[in-house]
Simulated scan of single mutants.
Amino acid sequence: MSVDQKAAAPGAVRPHVRLGQLDGLRGFAAIVIMLYHADMVFRTHTPFVRGYLLVDLFFLLSGFVLAVSTEAKLNAGIGALEFTQARFVRLWPLVAVGAGVAATRSLIRGYDPQALVVMLALDLAMIPSLAGRGPFYRLNGPQWTLFYELLANFLHALVLRRVATRWLPLIAAIFGVGLVYTVRRHGSDTLGVNAPNWHNWWMALPRVGWSYVLGVWLGRLYKAGLRTPALPWWLALALPVGGVMLVPSLPWRMATGDLLFVIPFLPLAMWGVAQCRPPQSALPALEWLGTFSLPLYCVHLTVLVAMSELFGRGAPIKYAAILAALALSYLFFRLVSFGSKPTVVKPKTA
């Protein structure tokens, strides 16, 4: 009996379908965010100056992936605290690598060692700054997204898993209204980066909630079997990157362009990537890129800043800094296990 016949036999369980294209999408997003930070640090202007918009893709992917691969475990009885602890353990190597590299840079720059130890301990414990000024985390700016991802995971396990699928678009829409308000008030979709105060502590929640809840809804639809016509896989993967490159040229204010990208475009683009089917030969590279994106996301900003401090902001230094960030990320990729697993769709038994 052939493999196809076995899969079609009554009661047979079909092989897992790996969504390696989503791993690849996460990898491309991390690269774009690095290029955005390179523009910011070296004061240049390239088509990636709005690359921060792909941070929202991380929340969208997190909700989608957990709805596809993990909600069954949540519904089987795992508690919210237990689940969040497991997620924390899985994400902590990213925190440790990012904060450790940033602390090393600060020590070399002459920061007070005792103060640095306190900051490092707080950041490693995922305790954010509540100073109302400066970054959300003291040493490594990108760590803020990990905090909100854990918060979203906790609320997913505590509440969202019990919400019927038909109500998720309404919840997402409520967050969407909040996102429109906060982005227009702030002027751009960059909320969450800075330490909160009593007046603005809530303003990052619509940004996270819109993408995460919508991702859960789309993930449930996907897991239930909804499929739509698919673009060629290479085009589907290129669309989110091309979209973020196009946003700076839109003839509208920054806030309007950001909202058009994050609300109607990004969810459709991510869904399009989920629908596409790369050839088997491309999947290992896409899955590798997804895993590599984890250390890259957490160390690149420190490397870019350190290189600019040491050697200036010339164009050759910018490209050298990007290469250095890629090289150091690859070193940690080889030395540290980040616990990344391919996105898997677990088929139902016949």
Rank of each mutant, 00 (worst) to 15 (best):
A173H: 08
P15C: 11
V183R: 02
M270R: 01
W210G: 00
V273M: 09
D56N: 13
V345S: 00
L91Q: 11
L158W: 15
A131I: 08
H300S: 10
V117S: 08
A274M: 05
A282Y: 09
V273E: 13
Y222M: 03
I317G: 02
L231W: 15
S308D: 05
E71H: 09
A103D: 15
S62N: 13
V32Q: 06
V180R: 03
S293K: 03
E287H: 06
L260K: 03
L179G: 00
G98M: 14
F42W: 10
F311C: 08
V41W: 13
N140T: 08
P142N: 11
E287K: 15
I263Y: 08
L81I: 07
V101D: 07
V241E: 10
Y52S: 04
G20F: 13
Y319R: 06
A157F: 10
R166S: 12
R161D: 08
A12W: 03
R109E: 13
A121M: 15
W202T: 01
L25P: 03
H300V: 13
L35P: 11
S188H: 09
P206E: 03
L231G: 12
A324Y: 04
M1N: 09
L221K: 07
L130A: 09
R133G: 06
A103R: 02
N153Q: 14
V344M: 08
L130R: 04
D39F: 04
L335I: 00
V118Y: 10
L124S: 08
L205C: 00
F64Q: 00
A236D: 10
V193N: 11
G132K: 04
L310P: 04
K73S: 14
G257K: 09
M126E: 12
A282S: 15
V68D: 00
S188M: 09
A12P: 06
P264H: 02
L294P: 08
P347K: 02
R90D: 14
G141W: 11
P342I: 02
V303L: 04
P316C: 07
L91M: 15
G51M: 02
L205F: 05
I317D: 00
E309L: 13
V213K: 05
M245S: 06
L116D: 05
V208L: 07
W202Y: 13
L91A: 13
V299P: 00
V213H: 12
A224I: 03
T182C: 05
Y52E: 05
A102P: 01
S337R: 12
W92M: 13
K6Q: 13
A324P: 08
S2W: 06
L231Q: 07
T256A: 09
L61R: 03
G27E: 07
L124E: 01
L91E: 14
W201S: 02
H199N: 12
W271C: 00
T70Y: 14
G79L: 14
G134F: 05
A282N: 13
Y52G: 05
K346N: 12
T44W: 02
W144G: 04
S129K: 00
